[in-house]
Structure formats: structure tokens, C-alpha cells
Amino acid sequence: MRRLLPGLAAVALVACEGRQSVTGGDGLHSGQFNSLFLIFLLVTAFFYLLVIAFLVAAVVRRRGRAEDRPEKSGGEGGFRLILIGWVALVALGLTGLTAASYFSDAAAGGARPANAIRIAVTANQWWWDVRYLDPVPANTIRTANELHLPVGVPVHIQLKSNDVIHSFWVPNLAGKQDLIPGRITDITLIPRKEGLYRGQCAEFCGLQHAHMALDVTVEPMETFEAWRRSQLRPAPPPATPLAVTGYNYIMTQECSACHNISGTPASGQVAPDLTHIASRRSIGAGTFPMSRGHLYAWIADPQSAKPGNHMPYVGLEPHELHGVVAYLETLK
């Protein structure tokens, strides 16, 4: 108990804060997590107390001395009954927990609602490729390392991996689901509360498993729709001379081989889509928060903060760097 009490307190504490917390309870299923976790915590705490109370009583009852002779067995008749009772009690507790777990799970594993927003997430070493699917192909949007979700609307996410096993996990909204090459898995989320959340890849996937985060924004439907419309727009042409330098650099040099920027000739598919890069919250799957300085840092040397990631060191001249950053900043 000594240790469970602070545990309980801590659960209560962390339940109220944190953008990446399993007790956040900001999604339908993660809400059920809290009540189920509490049930488990109480039942196990009860059993723990029982065991410790018995232990303490047993060891202080009669202290042994060095010269004690060993005793024969016997005088334990009552304890055989208690043992049976204990087994029954434990079995009961376990049955209860199993049932609670089962029903909570059954409630969570419900059918996929027809009105759900459909998203396809593909994991790559070490970033998330995100597509909002739409019956009209032209309305499909592609982004990376971020999800925008309208509050209260179910979203059905189809999960694939391009390389190794990753795991999709936004603890505040739901439990995790692995993305396994050669298989298609899926998860349904129903966000309940507006807010900015953080997800993170939860299956070890190599060098930069630590830097494979996902920014999740849960917002009112109108804001979400506005975001969606903005994402459908192609990139605007560069407006300032500096941005033009950057634009030219990106279109003619390495960048466009890997990255896509809609409305421009850059149509690489193996790296995050940059069409609206400046509207995102972070760079490099959560490695840096989005800011001019961090854009500089990333493009000047992507290998220093996220060593081993698949974007190479390009080695731009200072004026090229200024230009590229200036152009990227216009990609809202």
C-alpha cells in the first residue's frame, strides 16, 4: 500500500494533464480505460493489502531464536480451509477482472460507423504519411506527422507500414495498434475533447524510434473543415525574391526528388509532403517544434538532431538556405 497510495495519487494527478498520457481520457475508448484501470487498481490493491497484512502478522507473531529446534508439521488444519477459501477468493477476483476487461473491450471493439472519416496512415522509418481519403479522388489530402480530427466524429484509420513494424498510438485518444508490413490493420477513434495531443510510435522500429511522434489536433467541426479546405489548396507561387530563390532551388535540386509540393513540379513520394509544411506543429516527426529557426536547423543538417533519419545532409549555401526557408514558410 505504501507504494500503491502514491500510485493512486499519481494516477489522479496525471489524469488531469499531459498531451501524451494514457489516463487523458480524451477519446471514447481511452475514457473506458480510466474506469477499467481504476477497477483493476482497487482490486489489486485490495489483494496486495491482504497479502502484506498476512505477511506482517505472520513474521511478527513469534520471532524465532537461533537455538530453536525445528518443528514437525501439524497444527495447520484450519489453514487448509483458509487455503481453499483464498483460492476461491482469488479465482473470484480474477473472474471479476476478466469479465470487466472483456466487457470494456467488447464495448470498445464496436462496429465501424458508416459516417466515419476515413484516413490512411502509412508508417515509414521514422515518419507518418497521412492521407485523408475521399470518394472523390481529387479531394484526397496528404500530409505528414499530423492528424486533424473533428471532435465527436468517429474516424476510421487504416494502417500500413512501408518497412518495419511500427505502432500507432495516441494515448489520450485510444490504445495502440501495430502497423505491420504485409498486413493492413485499422483502428477507430472517437475524440471527445478538443485539444492538442501527441502520439508516438510505440513499437521499436530502429535508430530513430524515439523521434517518431504524431501531432494530433482535435477541433470543432468548422475549424476542421477549414483546415481540410486549406489542405486541398495547392502551394501558392513564391512571392518574394528570396522565396523565389528557395523555390528554384527546391524544384531543381535534390529536394523535389523526395518531397511532394502540390501545384509545383516537386512530386517525390518517399518523404513527407511539404505542401502545407508551415501549418504543422513540428518538424521531423516531433523532433523540433515548428519555427523559422528550427526549419533552418533541420534543412542545414537534418542529421544532427535526428541522426540516421532518411533525409540526407544536403549542404546548401547560406543564400540557398535563406531562400529555401523563406519559401517553406509560405507553405501554410
Binding site: A58, G64, F79
Partner: peptide, 9 residues
């Protein structure tokens, strides 16, 4: 139970 019945040293 053994601890209970015995004399722990």
C-alpha cells in the same frame, strides 16, 4: 502460512 505457523528467524 509457513511463516505464521513457524518461528521466523
Amino acid at each position: 502460512t509457513t511463516m505464521w505457523l513457524g518461528r521466523p528467524r
